[in-house]
Computed example of a mutant assay.
Amino acid sequence: MSTELIGSSGIGEPRVLATDAALGFIAEIRRDHPDILFHQSGGCCDGSSPMCYPAGDYIVGDNDVKLGEIGGVPVYISASQFEVWKHTQLIIDVVPGRGGMFSLDNGRERRFLTRSRLFGSGEACAVVFRGR
């Protein structure tokens, strides 16, 4: 059973957001690959890359945590990485450059980038266990 986070449903702030530029880039990628997902890479700080995959090509693990959705696309992170970032809100943005080798943003001269901000007191979301 994977872990899903409750965010904008009234319990705290969303754990993941996207800038307008990221939402536009997601829409562009979805024209070529309608069913996609994000998995946050194992970086330890701002500037880490969220990897974008065709949903059928990436197996979400039992220990992955669903942070939420951006532009209708689910965003996952490993449980161990979530432990490091559980006090932060992830903001998916776009910058010039090449995406990860297997990420769908590769070869488009732009790439997704994760920025973050610390949650303030009482902002963090509840964590609940749900089936995928």
Rank of each mutant, 00 (worst) to 15 (best):
N106C: 12
D64R: 00
R110S: 11
G71W: 04
L37I: 09
T114L: 12
Q81P: 03
P96Y: 06
N63W: 15
G42R: 11
Y53M: 01
A126Q: 14
D46S: 13
L67W: 01
R110L: 12
T88M: 12
E109P: 10
C44W: 15
S121V: 08
A79L: 11
S121E: 15
C44V: 12
L113C: 14
S80D: 14
G68V: 00
G107P: 06
E83K: 10
K66C: 10
W85T: 01
D32Y: 11
R117S: 08
R110D: 08
A27K: 03
H33I: 03
P54Y: 09
P34E: 10
R98S: 15
D105C: 06
S103V: 08
S116Y: 09
P50I: 00
E109C: 12
I77K: 00
C52I: 04
V75M: 02
S121Y: 15
I26C: 05
K86N: 06
V94Q: 00
I26Y: 02
T114D: 07
I59V: 15
E28P: 02
K66R: 10
D32W: 15
F119T: 04
V128Q: 05
V60E: 08
T114Y: 07
I91K: 02
R31C: 11
R110T: 06
A27Q: 05
I29D: 02
I59P: 10
L37S: 02
A27V: 06
S121H: 14
V127M: 08
D35T: 13
D46L: 06
L67K: 01
P74A: 04
F112E: 00
E69F: 05
D57T: 12
K66G: 05
T88F: 15
E28T: 15
W85P: 00
C125A: 15
E83M: 08
S49I: 13
D57S: 15
I29N: 00
I77T: 04
C44D: 15
S121M: 14
S103W: 01
S41F: 08
E109Y: 13
A124G: 09
D105P: 09
G97T: 08
P50E: 01
E28Y: 09
P34Q: 07
A55L: 08
K86G: 03
M51C: 14
D105H: 06
R31Y: 07
V127D: 12
G68S: 07
L113T: 04
G56Y: 10
Y53S: 02
G47C: 07
A79Q: 09
V127F: 05
A27H: 03
L67R: 01
R108L: 11
S78G: 05
C45E: 14
I36T: 05
M51F: 12
Q81D: 10
G47D: 09
E69P: 01
E28G: 03
I59Q: 14
Y58G: 04
F119W: 06
V60S: 06
G61C: 14
D93F: 07
F112W: 04
W85D: 00
S121G: 11
K66Y: 08
G43A: 04
P74V: 07
V128N: 06
H33F: 09
R108T: 06
D105G: 03
S48I: 10
I70R: 00
G99T: 09
R108K: 14
H87M: 13
R30G: 03
T114M: 11
F102A: 09
D32N: 11
A126F: 10
G42C: 07
P50L: 05
E28N: 07
G47V: 01
C45H: 15
R115H: 07
M51A: 13
I77F: 05
E123H: 04
Q81W: 12
